[in-house]
């Protein structure tokens, strides 16, 4: 009975969550872009000449219906990977993306083994 209630609520939550609107958020994209002429600021946070121009271009591209990924790829091609705050998963960056999870799994295994050793005693 209790389990059913929980499942009910989880499903309820999922339904609500999946009702997100799918329009691409301009600000979110701009936050993920580095302002190349600033000190560690994102394009969204900067008001430099460069940031203003990028804002215009991204706005246009969203209007044209481009996806978030297409916009990032376009800018990476023109300015290099330095411009995106989320490094694309490729053969240079796979260590960055996979290593933390590897550590997480190894940590879990180590704790599991410690406990299992005890059970065998």
């Amino acid at each position: 009975m209790r389990l059913k209630t929980i499942i009910f609520f989880i499903i309820l939550n999922l339904n609500i969550a999946s009702a997100e609107n799918f329009t691409l958020d301009l600000n979110k994209v701009l936050k993920n872009l580095r302002c190349l002429v600033c000190q560690g600021q994102s394009v969204a946070d900067s008001n430099s000449e460069f940031a203003q121009t990028i804002k215009l271009v991204v706005k246009d591209q969203i209007k044209e219906g481009k996806s978030e990924k297409e916009i990032y790829n376009f800018l990476v091609e023109k300015y290099g990977e330095w411009i995106v705050y989320k490094p694309p998963l490729n053969k240079v960056n796979f260590v960055l993306w996979l290593f933390p999870y590897l550590v997480f799994v190894i940590g879990g295994v180590v704790i599991f083994l410690l406990l299992k050793k005890r059970n065998n005693h």
Binding site: W82, Y85, L96
Partner: peptide, 14 residues
């Protein structure tokens, strides 16, 4: 010889 930025989206995702 390739510069990458690792910023908020990376940390948030992981």
């Amino acid at each position: 010889d390739n510069k990458v930025s690792v910023g908020p989206p990376f940390y948030n995702t992981v």
